[in-house]
Nucleic acid binder design. Structure first.
Lengths: 352, 352
DNA sequence: GTGAAAGCGCTAACAC
DNA sequence: GTGTTAGCGCTTTCAC
């Protein structure tokens, strides 16, 4: 139980060499004879020595730490992304300090300060936006920030999203082609760019076809609130015949509600379309038609951009919009003339 | 972009005081006059100074970092737990360094070394076991380890699980009371204590009633593998009339497979019981009967134990088994004389 | 209560 | 190559 720290000095003594020799052996870019290395490694193993990264970081100024602020692990999209992000960064020699925020929270300030206190070399904000004063602070500290799944008009910020406006528009086109007449929308939290962009694209698409939005309600990206929104939308004699829900997490909630509590058939009575393409969306019980956010590529771009900026101060922040295809399954009526979509019906279920 | 670090020396200069005075103002337990504090805080704010935690940690030996190794975020149980764990630790002044492992991975060694390199003050292993040599190393480093959802016979390790043996036995009793005659089991990864204990309890329960296990297959806690296991189990003329699946993640996969690909009705044709009680289990589409692992309490116990051991070296590691109730829903036939269970049917769906 | 000085464990100049 | 020396930014004695 006694916390007896073994330092490079101890190893040096045992190996009969200088302390700096030990350091060199354990420093990637340093030069040491193989004889030296052998001696030192032997002594180190014997004592169970490993370099203290905190001390190293203090000197080099490189903590090899990436701060990640994430809200909303309840939405399957984020655990998936977090797992990929963390693994990807690990592979590149970085490690992840994770802080949880609340979804509609403004006091991200504190969390961000904490990250900076730990001298993180970069920050990923997943499903969280930031004030421009925060952006300024990170910029001043020389710590690059990448927004993951949020877009924001600030030159100091990088951001990776799918093309949410285009995605929203595609949904409108699809529903209109499917001959729906009373098209409703359930919105996410309006503080999120994803919500605003998806809705904007959706309205744009309806507009181009001269189709009005039949009804709108708000689910704030919350499971229960989405069901409450559905409850209100369907409490009228003339019910919507299609609902675009701002993300899959809410769309699945709405499906559960409409099928189980309202006894509505999907898509016969009402079409539902979501956004994200989380794993659950492809389960046969749901077969949710949705827009796929390419989380793999989003993570790759995030990591690449972050590391590029860490490695070279002159790398400019960028915004990346990734294409996001419509995945046609069976929760929304499919237009007769719609191109064959069997190839996109990728169920994880075993084929017999 | 220039990373100009602001140090306590800069603040000291601006405030016209000594560097150590600045330190004292920012050190919780230190003594400084309020006049001093005011001057220093003003200068610090002006410069945007914040103490470098790495430097502080180097001296105090307290990094305020907790390492968490987690595999398997795909299983909803873990994101839920991770979120609670992280929030709970944040509230107590600790922060979480998260490393991802593979579920059936043996090279946890490397990950653990990395954590120790960062001078974490404690470690939580979620869904991962550890070799006794690793336990020894953590013990030697004075870093307490708590296994979350894994049990292991090592005096140096703390562990928190539900009472998996008892839980497995309850399932057996329930299925037998429900008059099932061909009871099968789909196992998780056998390297996991949860798998072994649940099966042991289950077999024990069957045994007490003189009921043989009709069939057994292995899903390794994997979604697809579980469906493949179900495929094999139901490829015989005499199909099982009940299946206990080692966790909800697999149980839901099995339900999807049996209903959608086999056209079996649940529970009319076959009863399914899972383990964990993840959020999804309560969705009306599934209504999965399962054993609830009290993740809230598991997290609380984990955090309390970890911090107790960090604060006081003499605190002995402990094993904690939490009671895990059977949650009766509708995926398994309910015995006629079974006590009323309406109260445990807690669906998140809005009531009208 | 405050400043001067020492040193946490390490890396990086600098001489030899 | 290798040892010596000087810090990284901070906390913590120790005098005053």
């Amino acid at each position: 139980m006694a916390k007896e720290l073994i330092t490079s000095a101890h190893v040096a003594e045992l190996a009969g060499v200088s302390q700096s020799a030990v350091s060199r052996v354990f420093t990637p870019g340093a030069s040491a004879s193989s004889a030296m290395a052998k001696k030192v490694r032997k002594a180190a193993d014997e004592l169970g020595y490993r370099p203290n990264i905190l001390a190293r970081s203090l000197i080099t100024g490189k903590s090899k730490l990436i701060g990640v602020i994430v809200a909303y692990l309840e939405n399957q999209f984020y655990p998936e992304a977090l797992e990929k992000l963390s693994k990807s960064l690990q592979e590149r020699g970085y490690h992840v300090l994770v802080l949880m925020a609340k979804l509609t929270d403004d006091n991200v300030d504190q969390l961000l300060d904490t990250l900076l206190d730990y001298q993180v070399e970069g920050i990923v904000m997943a499903s969280v936006s930031m004030s421009s004063s925060l952006a300024a602070r990170c910029d001043a500290a020389g710590v690059p920030v990448v927004l993951f799944n949020r877009m924001q008009d600030d030159d100091r910020l990088s951001a990776v999203t799918s093309d949410n406006i285009n995605g929203g528009e595609k949904v409108a086109q699809f529903l209109i082609a499917g001959d729906h007449k009373r098209i409703a929308y359930i919105a996410g939290w309006d503080g999120a760019s994803t919500q605003r962009d998806r809705e904007q694209g959706f309205l744009q698409g309806l507009n181009k076809a001269g189709m009005p939005l039949y009804a709108r309600d708000v689910g704030n990206f919350d499971f229960i609130k989405a069901q409450e929104a559905a409850h209100r939308l369907f409490d009228h004699p003339e019910k919507p015949d299609a609902v675009f829900v701002a993300n899959d997490h809410m769309a699945l909630a709405v499906m559960e509600y409409l099928r189980q509590k309202r006894r509505l058939r999907i898509p016969d009575d009402v079409s539902i379309v979501g956004y994200d393409d989380v794993h659950l969306a492809s389960w046969p019980s749901f077969g949710l038609t949705t827009i796929r956010q390419p989380s793999n590529r989003m993570v790759v771009e995030t990591v690449n951009m972050l590391i590029a900026q860490i490695k070279d101060d002159n790398t400019e922040p960028r915004k990346i919009f990734l294409e996001s295809p419509l995945i046609v399954r069976k929760s929304a009526r499919i237009p007769d003339d719609w191109p064959d979509t069997n190839n996109t019906f990728d169920s994880p279920v075993v084929e017999q």
